[in-house]
Write a protein that binds this DNA or RNA. Sequence first.
DNA 1: CGAGCAACCTGCATGC
DNA 2: TGCATGCAGGTTGCTC
Length: 271
Amino acid sequence: MPELPEVETTRRGIEPLVLGKQVVQVLIHNAALRWPIPSDLDAILPAQKVCSVERRSKYLLMNFERGTLVIHLGMTGHLRVCRPGEKRRKHDHVEMLFSDHTVLRFNDSRRFGAIFWTETNPLLHERLVNLGPEPFEEGFNPTYLFQLSRKRKVAVKPFIMDARVVVGVGNIYASEALFRAGISPVKPAGRLSRKAFAMLVQSVQEVLSEAIAAGGTTIRDFMDTEGRPGYFSQELRVYGRAGEPCMVCGDVISQTRLGQRSTFHCRKCQK
DNA sequence: CGAGCAACCTGCATGC
DNA sequence: TGCATGCAGGTTGCTC
């Protein structure tokens, strides 16, 4: 589900609602996510306060006084801040109760998400340590991509979706960024020019920042912490628009399969 | 090493 | 109505 804009929307939603609050209880109703949720969270978190909520890649980092709760939303995960007395819904796997009666719930129907606890620097955790640069960091620039891609035969779309290359670009925004940059998703990464990568860097940053400003993209079930959808879906130019005319040239938008993922592009505008 | 793909799991749309 | 199929925003870990 969530790509970077949806995770960032979630982060911005929960941070003000949990900041400085003290955990009273953690209820784990189903620990079977991608990896088992540590069963001792209810022994670790109570009495600790939330110091900050950060994001690295698609991971949310809830910093407490003695460590960090790392949360990944997978495909269908979302966090919701509930009103006192609000009923649990299907697939609400974890509940965090705070002393002011705020309840934070993690819901994830497909259970591809993950939750783990670390008392050392979360950025050095084995799941995070090999991640590439954030798309808005200086390290994500045309020269970096150009050098990294030399001799790579992989198509440019899976290349920029590879979190070791750059984080946060998932299936929707990869198609969108490549359309805006005028680059064919099937072109081998190693055959792109420096100039093409300059276009791509700009497009990735543009599409991600616009999507964050719109509160993310809701295709099926993404919702923010208050249950609202994201409004970027209506700004999508190619994703989900197979068969429709290209907004630029009028040619039909094609849908293909690339690295097992649906890929949308305009064959005329993207070379 | 890189490339390709199966797997994890549930829900939903589609077609017979 | 029921059932089978395929697809879905991510990531890991296996083969070759």
